[in-house]
């Protein structure tokens, strides 16, 4: 037994000891709270502006909290776009993509991290290389492919590419899987466990934290995705939320109150989802050898 593991064992015994509150802690909390508030200011401004009458949004000097609360922006937003439908379309696409792409990219990541096959490194570079061509340029050929598949103006045009390919997700999960000590799997494999069993019963549970993080950002990315839906969707029954929001932003001017209300409607659920899901990251179990 190495000194390290002994120390780990000892540290686990001592982990419960209480530390007194130090002044450094207070400064830390004050600083973090100030930074977090500053970062969130534009979001809060957007949210409060959605309850302001138009002339107050642009008042100089600006107001932060609305002086005269109004829900007029929300009324015109709901009158001008079918948000219930859009909400369903966005949720459906984002949830499907998140679930399927987490699975497919973790599977691929496992292959890259753990299976020694010929061309592994080159194939991995191909995956990385796909991130290096700007998406705007490949949109025309992709549109033609979607036309062949008959997926134009259907959610499939958004779901399938994102579910079945994510260089980003594969790369991220590969990094995490490579960070998991190998002894456990080696032992299990010697005992005759299949790779599938190792993957599902040993690797996946250890990836709860990064899977949650990747899941959150996959969901966010899909929820906020603007370019794909813009190009592939035509009928407004299929429109996702970002497209609906942009209806309030015109060629020249914008309908500011409705725009602020609509953007808040779209963004607020994300923060709620994040608030709930982030517990997973915090409570996520440590991946390191300390589990043994």
């Amino acid at each position: 037994m190495s000194t390290l593991t002994r120390n780990i064992a000892r540290s686990q015994e001592t982990r419960t000891r209480r530390r007194p509150v130090r002044p450094g802690k207070i400064i830390l909390h004050l600083a973090l709270a100030a930074c977090a508030a500053l970062m969130a200011l534009p979001f809060l401004w957007m949210m409060f502006s959605s309850f302001k009458p138009l002339d107050e949004i642009f008042r100089q000097p600006p107001t932060f909290l609305p002086e005269a609360w109004t829900t007029g922006g929300y009324e015109t937003a709901f009158a001008g776009a079918d948000f219930v439908r859009g909400f369903w379309n966005s949720t459906y696409i984002a949830v499907t993509v998140t679930v399927v792409s987490l699975l497919t990219s973790t599977m691929a990541a496992y292959a890259f991290a753990r299976i020694d096959f010929r061309g592994s490194k080159h194939l991995f570079m191909v995956f990385l290389a796909t991130m290096m061509i700007p998406a705007q340029l490949t949109i025309i050929p992709l549109y033609i492919i979607m036309g062949w598949l008959g997926w134009i103006d259907t959610p499939l045009s958004l779901i399938m590419p994102a579910s079945l390919f994510s260089a980003f997700g594969v790369f991220l999960m590969r990094q995490y899987i490579k960070g998991i000590p190998r002894e456990l799997e080696e032992a299990a494999e010697l005992d005759g466990a299949s790779r599938f069993r190792v993957f599902t019963t040993m690797i996946l549970p250890l990836l709860r934290t990064p899977l949650t993080a990747l899941g959150i950002f996959t969901f966010l990315g899909q929820w906020n995705n603007f370019f794909g839906p813009l190009i592939f969707l035509n009928s407004d029954a299929n429109f996702t939320l970002p497209l609906l929001v942009n209806q309030f932003k015109g060629q020249y001017g914008a309908d500011w109150t409705s725009l602020m209300s609509a953007t808040t409607l779209v963004a607020a659920p994300l923060l709620i989802i994040f608030a709930v899901a982030q517990r997973q990251i915090v409570d996520g179990i440590a991946l390191s050898g300390s589990k043994s």
Partner: peptide, 9 residues
């Protein structure tokens, strides 16, 4: 919060 703030805002 900035991640979910719309590009318009």
């Amino acid at each position: 919060a900035p991640v979910v703030t719309s590009s318009v805002a």
